[in-house]
Design a protein around this nucleic acid. Structure first.
Lengths: 118, 118
DNA sequence: CCGTATCCTCTACGATACTG
DNA sequence: CAGTATCGTAGAGGATACGG
């Protein structure tokens, strides 16, 4: 992610600094509506490594869109959830999400062309 | 960008595959409302190299959100504009854009902390 | 003016092993 | 269960020079 560049123009860059990247959208998506435990997320977000998951969660926590609750039990139990701020982001994301859903086929098709072109 | 991974879950990944990255949001933003010439874009999108600009434009063209018009004049004159598809994307992007604008200060503050932390 | 062609850097992301 | 610690890699992005 481009962390040091000042976020200019419209707020898109600021927003993308928070939800951009390979995993954050999926993590956010899986936290929408309900809190999740770490291991639960790891299973839900297919293909993610523990390192990446924890890293993304920490960043989202630092950005104030995710909260972490350690129940201090044994065995360990930690829950992640969207903050109010995170929920507001999810709301703002919805139209884009729907746009994507509506056009996945089209997008994937073009991508496939590019790949087969080489 | 993660080009080969299948786009799963909600459409967010599909959408981000199209507007994600460092430059595309800004380029899109600068094309919103009016067509732009290449050199014009290069000046508007501050800091971008010609290589990056043309690359992003080509990808956006391949994704069908931008159209390229070569007027075949001398000196050369080429115009880039959003397609209808591109406009629909820009629409879908607006809430996120506004969310970002509303919270830039907060986001940048956290980022500053992180940087100063090392 | 509108690009291409190279070469290079940097970092996001991945694989693996280990711990309280 | 919920993480840390390392090491390694691919590709996004940057710098510079040249071409129609």
């Amino acid at each position: 992610m481009a962390r040091r560049r000042p976020l200019t123009g419209c707020g898109l860059e600021a927003a993308l600094a928070v939800v951009g990247g390979k995993w954050k959208p999926i993590v956010l998506w899986n936290l929408a509506g309900t809190p999740r435990r770490f291991g639960e997320l790891r299973r839900l977000v297919e293909g993610i490594s523990e390192k990446m998951l924890i890293q993304q969660l920490r960043e989202m926590e630092a950005d104030g869109i995710v909260s972490r609750t350690d129940f201090r039990e044994i065995p360990p139990r930690v829950e992640y959830a969207l903050t109010e701020f995170g929920v507001s982001l999810a709301e703002a994301l919805r139209p884009l999400c729907e746009w994507g859903t509506a056009h996945v086929a089209r997008i994937e098709a073009r991508r496939a062309e590019v790949v087969s072109a080489r």
